[in-house]
Design a protein around this nucleic acid. Structure first.
Length: 604
RNA sequence: GGUCCGGUAGCUCAGCUGGAUAGAGCAGCUGCCUUCUAAGCAGCAGGCCAUUGGUUCGAAUCCAAUCCGGAUCACCA
């Protein structure tokens, strides 16, 4: 009889047993492993897992009820975990023994590492957030930040050495725009003198720049100038360009102002990141790295991988790959976006000896990332093969895209505050504030509000674009973090009242003698599935799988809770069984949500 | 025009490495708090899975074509 391995997922074990059975029953036939499919049995049928028989029929030239019976009998007598079976059409529905589930539960309910993989020794970097320093974060950036943080957590749980990196885009014409406008219109205003958060203050002057610029263009056009020319000739734009040149030349006054204003932005970002519960292990600044790619490009030219045009600009030809020609270095020798990214990619690779380099970047840059990877490959850089673009869809308003230049953005800080206020309002309306201190309430509102926001942005497949309607705001019912938090708080409450420590309690003498009720078994079955889901989330860089799983876990717990009492369980054995179940449910919930940076309260 | 991504219930989304009668949440309608937290549970209603053709025991899922929506194809980052 096969030994039950609770370290191996049940689906894998069933597949292995089925393979063994087929080999024993039909030694002549060669059935590929891919022909064996195992699914969870649909609720309307009896059984836990289902083996699909159709693929075998042709290969073995038998009827489903014949092969089903043979397989079923074999599994019952040999597998050690199949109790009974039922054949419906071409489906073999298997019911596991309760002993299997009892062994699984008592082996795992107290395992703080359940769902995690052993260290793989792989170095993975996840680059995310990567803001511009000329404006505050908006709602769209939140998706990037949460995704990056969640995927980092998932990859870590999956056994990787993860470095969270943030590449700050701190140089370029955009920051000069804010600087020019500040010089002219701020009258020396600082975050300290105005009480405005640094990133917002700088962002205000970025908007101011664009207002003035638009006005100047309009004036030139009404004076009879061609619009395209006016856009180039507007004095304030010329001033910004002059400032960029001064910056690159190292002009002290310009660099000092740049440092000061960037400093304000970083202070502002720090507050926002902290509030979001997001952090980084490594900061990169484009002002430090923007020259690095140049060298590599020049080397590529020497090697003949790249080519030079008459004006002296350097290009790569990707026509063989079905793409275009792409500029890598301007005629005047200055670098472009791609040049910087080439340098940074190599730098990251060398700094951390990377096996995988994940870029969390919106899907509007799919082409750019494709080119980046191809160019690196052409240049013979090994980092090319480590790059994975985690491409996500943009968050749009019902009216279309958010544009900070036009002021049609939902500000991230405002959104956070709004979510927390909503959490407070709903808690108060529900009359659930008793027994908390003021500080505890404050923390609870943050846990609920931020949890809802994170979950809302993570629960959808990253590659799909989202439409967010601020007027409708975000619900705290249904498919939300709040729902999961509530289930968790209920479990904690039960355990508290039973005087059981939810972290350390054990039930050493437990021995299952009574049949598992459907709601009990359903929960254990779903818990058994957790490591598979975590693995899939990592393989696909997709936190939405974890969100969906955890939501269903909470749903099943709520149904269970409705039909079975813990405190008034029929007998001591049932009580212990259910306590183990709910301890494990709470543990898995905390593990899954914690991996994505969502906290679960003990009381709400 | 080329390339890539999407189109599933009134709305927001699962399901897509082919499997049984396509699932959740929201919104709508019924019930359920003297019982471990009703931010919950149970139920009703709501679908030519964009269209057409193909592949096969079987297609929302794979292939092809078409239609619709989006992104991108910058000496901006």
């Amino acid at each position: 009889m096969r030994q039950i391995k609770i370290s191996m997922s049940l689906v894998e074990q069933i597949k292995a047993s089925a393979k063994e059975a087929l080999k024993s029953l039909y030694p002549e036939a060669d059935i590929p492993a891919s022909a064996i499919t195992v699914n969870q049995t649909k609720p309307e049928f009896t059984g836990d897992y289902t083996l699909v028989l159709f693929p075998f029929l042709k290969l073995l030239k038998t009827k489903p009820d014949v092969i089903g019976k043979q397989l079923g009998d074999y599994l019952v007598s040999h597998s050690g975990f199949v109790a009974s079976y039922d054949i419906v059409a071409g489906f073999l529905n298997l019911t596991m023994t309760d002993a299997y589930w009892a062994t699984f539960l008592s082996g795992k309910y107290n395992d703080g590492k359940y769902g995690e993989q052993a260290a793989k020794g792989k170095n993975v970097m996840v680059e995310y957030s990567s803001p511009n320093t000329n404006k505050p974060l908006h709602f769209g950036h939140l998706r990037n930040n949460f995704l990056g943080y969640a995927v980092s957590g998932i990859l870590k749980v999956n056994g990787n050495n993860v470095t969270k990196a943030n590449l700050v885009n701190d140089r370029g014409i955009h920051i000069c725009k804010s600087m020019v406008a500040w010089k002219h219109y701020a009258d020396g205003a600082t975050p300290q003198s105005t009480g405005v958060k640094g990133d917002h203050l700088v962002g205000d002057y970025y908007v101011k720049f664009n207002d003035v610029y638009k006005q100047q263009v309009a004036e030139l056009v009404s004076g009879g100038m061609d619009e395209a020319l006016a856009e180039k000739k507007a004095p304030i734009m010329k001033e910004a360009q002059d400032m960029l040149r001064a910056w690159e030349a190292g002009d002290k006054e310009t660099v000092d102002l740049w440092k000061t204003m960037n400093g304000w932005v970083y202070e502002g970002f720090d507050v926002t990141y902290k509030r979001l519960g997001i952090d980084f292990d490594k900061m990169y600044y484009e002002s430090d790295t923007y020259l690095l790619g140049k060298e590599v490009v020049l080397k590529g030219l020497e090697k003949g991988v790249l080519f030079k045009k008459e004006d002296g600009s350097i290009w790569v030809n990707l026509e063989d790959e079905g793409l275009d020609q792409k500029l890598l270095l301007r005629a005047d020798g200055t670098s472009v976006y791609m040049t910087q990214d080439i340098g940074t990619a190599i730098l990251k690779y060398n700094d951390f000896n990377l096996d995988k380099s994940v870029y969390v970047i919106a899907d509007e840059q799919n082409y750019h990332m494709q080119v980046l990877q191809l160019v690196l490959k052409k240049l013979g850089e090994p980092c090319a093969d480590t790059i994975h673009h985690l491409s996500y869809g943009m968050v749009e308003l019902p009216t279309g895209r958010m544009k900070s230049r036009e002021g049609t953005v939902v500000d991230a800080d405002d959104m956070i505050a709004e979510m927390i206020a909503m959490a407070q309002q709903q808690t108060e309306e529900a009359g659930k504030t008793e027994g908390f201190t003021q500080d505890e309430l404050k923390e609870l509102y943050e846990t609920i509000g931020l949890g809802a926001l994170k979950f809302y942005l993570l629960r959808v497949d990253p590659k799909k674009k989202m439409i967010f309607d601020p007027k409708e705001s975000i619900d705290l019912h249904g498919f939300t973090a709040t729902f999961i938090q509530y289930a968790h708080a209920r479990i904690c409450s039960i355990l508290r009242k039973e005087g059981v420590d939810r972290h350390t309690a054990t039930f050493p003498g437990f021995n299952l003698t009574q049949e598992l009720a459907p709601a009990e078994k359903a929960l254990i079955l779903w818990l058994e599935h957790y490591p598979d889901v975590m693995q899939a989330s990592a393989d696909e860089y997709n936190p939405s799988l974890l969100c969906n799983y955890t939501f269903q876990l909470a749903q099943q717990f709520n149904s269970f809770y409705d039909v079975h009492s813990i405190s008034k369980a029929e007998n001591e054995e049932k009580k212990q069984l259910r306590m183990m179940i709910i301890m494990m449910v709470a543990r898995v919930m905390r593990h899954a949500m914690g991996t994505m940076g969502i906290r679960l309260p003990e009381k709400m």
